[in-house]
Structure formats: structure tokens, C-alpha cells
Amino acid sequence: MDIPGAALLCVLAVLGAGLQRISGMGFALTVAPFAVVVAGPGGGIAVVNACSALLAAVLTVHLRQSIDLRRAAVLTCFGIVGVGAGALMARVVPGAWLEIVIGVLVIASILLVSRPRLPGARTRGGGTVGAGLASGFMSVTAGISGPPLALYAVATGWEPQRFAATVQPVFLVLGATSFATKVLVPRGALDGSVNGMLLAAVAAAALCGAALAGTLARIIRAAVARRILLLVSAVGGLLVLGRGAGDLLS
């Protein structure tokens, strides 16, 4: 295991988990790009999927009173369909091209999420379907399922506290389903590339970050936390994109 890389992932996992506890998302977007660099597109995304599911399970219990069960169920159902489509793509796309796809998805997500408001009228039922499908697709291919849901929340005027609570069971199911497609389905995308020690270390760091969220909220203001999230994610997305391009050219 790459010790410096693993240590960096653990630090980012603490930060990302704290951001997710405060705002509803942030763990996967912070950790996933660097996990791909450290462990490859198969093993890295699998680690993020598993740890995202674990963190979301803890936050689901903690925030259960604010969860909109009906909306969570609809997003989850269509998200599972998106996971299936993304899993098929991950099997047929070569590793270098998959890294490029992941890098592009991360950077595009940052550009969209960083916009303060979306143009046009508020979305209706079709927006729920699209958000769920996109969230599941991005979960299994890039490890990040939050940006489509964040865009949907902005478009529908979803109250932030309800959003932060409701997306946790969605992250839980999509993360677990995405992980299952990699380790349980025959001829999955991992080929033994998941490092158990790395998975355990990142999971422990994520739980620590969730526990320290109250302290992080007092130290880091919401606007500063958002800038940190976008900056770290952008650096990671560019690294993954550059690595994939380099593999193609070599």
C-alpha cells in the first residue's frame, strides 16, 4: 500500500466526512479523485463507495427525523437503475479512458455545483428521475453521487436541512449497490485491486470526521468549507484527468 497516499486519503476523509455531516455532501467529492490516483479507477472508487455507504448509514440514523422518505425512495429507485448502466460502462471502458471519464465528471460537477443558481424554471417530476439516474451512474463510475442531487435541490428549492438528511439514505443504498457491482458480480471491475487495509483506514477516518463535525463547523465557516471542498476536488479531478491522458499517450 502507498503509505503517503493512504495517509492523504485519510486526512481528506476526515475533512470530507465533516463537510458531509454539516452540508449533506462532500465526502465522495473530496476523496474520490485522490482515491483513483492512489488505488486506480477500480479499487479507488470501490473504497469510496464502501466508505460513503458506511458514513451515510451513520448519518441516516443521526438525521432520521428530517428525512423525506418518499423523495428518498424515488431518488433511490432510479439511482439503482443508473448504477446498473454505469456498471456496464465501467466493464467495457479501458482503465485510462475510465480515468478520463472520472476526471471530466468531477470537474463538470464542480463547475455546476459552484453556480449559485440554475437558469430556467424549477424542475418537475422529470427532474427527480434524471437526478436519480445521474446520481447512480456517477456513483458507480466516479464514486460521486452528490452533485446531481445538489443541482436538483437548487432547482426545486429544497430546504437545505431536509436535503442534507434525505440524501443520506440515497447515498447509503447507491454506495452499497455500486460496491456490490464491483465485488459480488462475476467478472467485476476490481480484479483484486481493493486493499483491505486502505479500506479500513479510510472508513475509520470517515467515522472520525463525522464525529468531529461539530468542531469543524465551529472552526470552518460554511463559505470557507465550500471553497475548500471545490478546491480539493478540482485538484483531484485534474490529477485523475492528467493520469488518464498520460496513460493513453504512453
Rank of each mutant, 00 (worst) to 15 (best):
M1T: 12
L9T: 09
C10Y: 00
C10T: 01
A13R: 02
G16E: 01
G16H: 01
A17C: 11
A17M: 09
L19D: 04
L19F: 15
Q20T: 14
G26F: 10
L29R: 01
L29G: 02
P33S: 04
F34A: 11
A35D: 11
G40S: 13
V47W: 00
A50C: 03
S52T: 15
A53W: 04
L55H: 00
A56D: 14
A57M: 14
L59A: 10
L59N: 08
T60R: 09
H62T: 14
H62L: 13
H62Y: 11
L63Q: 10
L63A: 04
R64E: 01
S66F: 10
S66V: 05
L69G: 12
L69H: 12
R70P: 04
R71M: 12
R71A: 13
A73M: 09
T76Q: 03
C77S: 15
F78M: 00
G79W: 08
I80C: 11
I80L: 15
G82R: 12
G82K: 11
G82Q: 14
G84Q: 07
L88P: 01
L88F: 11
A90K: 00
V93E: 00
V93L: 13
G95E: 15
A96D: 14
L98H: 00
I100D: 04
V101F: 14
V101T: 11
G103D: 07
V106R: 02
A108W: 02
S109N: 04
I110T: 05
L111W: 12
L112M: 14
R115W: 06
R117I: 05
R117Q: 13
P119A: 13
R122M: 12
G126Q: 08
G126H: 10
G127V: 07
V129N: 03
G130P: 05
G130E: 07
A131N: 09
L133R: 01
A134E: 02
S135V: 02
G136S: 04
V140H: 06
V140D: 02
A142K: 07
G143N: 08
I144G: 03
S145W: 01
P147H: 13
A150C: 07
A153W: 01
A155C: 08
T156N: 03
T156C: 06
E159S: 05
Q161N: 10
A165G: 10
T166L: 07
Q168C: 10
F171I: 01
L172G: 06
V173F: 04
L174M: 12
L174T: 05
G175W: 14
T177D: 04
T177Q: 06
T177F: 12
S178H: 11
A180F: 03
K182D: 00
P186A: 13
L190S: 14
D191A: 15
S193D: 04
S193V: 05
S193G: 05
N195A: 05
G196F: 13
M197R: 14
L198Q: 12
A201C: 15
A201I: 05
A205P: 11
C208R: 03
G209Q: 10
A210I: 06
A211F: 13
A213H: 03
G214P: 08
R218E: 10
R218H: 11
I220H: 00
A222L: 08
A222I: 08
V224F: 13
A225I: 04
R227H: 08
V232P: 06
G237K: 00
V240T: 03
G242R: 10
G242A: 12
G246I: 00
S250A: 15
